[in-house]
Design a protein around this nucleic acid. Structure first.
Lengths: 122, 122
DNA sequence: TCTCATAGTTACGTCAAGGGAACCGCCCTT
DNA sequence: AAGGGCGGTTCCCTTGACGTAACTATGAGA
């Protein structure tokens, strides 16, 4: 069984982790938390994302009701993406994790380099 | 550049996501949150994990100071893994995310199947 | 002596996530 | 008429994550 186990998700957190574990999803949510944004604007501001991955990511977020997609009747038609209420609440939850990360990163960094430098005393 | 971008992590949340996004890490933390446990005991209780992945996962968790590894002077030597304080606090943060997941899963499920059934009105 | 358990490591093959680039129709500007 | 931005889709190919299986050492028990 190669790669990721997309196994039966009776477990709710797995559903979330599938989204939160994906870096592009998180970055997209973080960007959209600042306000609605259009496709190419997102593409420009999310550093390193490919056009394809942005499309895929937005589709998944939309599918989960985290992001809304609105086609503006302009010419040429523009598409505006925004966080839904649910998306905003997930952003909050991610914020909590982010707070943990910010608080503990220095210690983790320290332990990590310490671990890497120690001899292999298997 | 295939698969995951292990890019420069100035961003703390990326560090966390690298761990939290990994299903095995989360499952391991959840198991260890119940109390210390030995290698093969973990292997038996974490459904579907391979020996190799458990070893890799534990190494990474230990490296980040989330899990401690203690060799017991028994014969044959047994190795007991346990959450550190930091590990416990991460377990708390994951719990928050889990709460969000439990609360929103029904809605997500609904939206998801709704999305899947709607015609492709591109 | 043979086998089992404990706690791994190493080698190898596979498979799908994701990057890159080309392509699409539409409209605007030059 | 030729380019350029918008909002994607489709294809191919690489690569890294992961499972499988074999191998390690040590000591207990039959």
């Amino acid at each position: 069984m190669g790669a990721k186990r997309k196994l039966d998700y009776d477990c709710p957190i797995r559903d979330v982790l599938d989204r939160v574990g994906d870096a592009w999803s998180v970055l997209t949510i973080l960007e959209l938390s600042k306000g609605p944004c259009r496709f190419n604007a997102l593409k420009r501001v999310i550093d390193g994302i490919s056009q394809r991955m942005l499309a895929v990511t937005l589709r998944n977020l939309e599918r989960d009701g985290l992001v809304s997609r609105q086609v503006l009747p302009t010419a040429p038609p523009q598409v505006e993406y925004a966080l839904t209420d649910r998306g905003h609440s997930l952003h909050g939850a991610i914020g909590a994790l982010n707070a943990w990360a910010v608080e503990h990163q220095p210690g983790i960094r320290r332990d990590r380099s310490h671990y890497d430098q120690r001899p292999k005393l298997v």
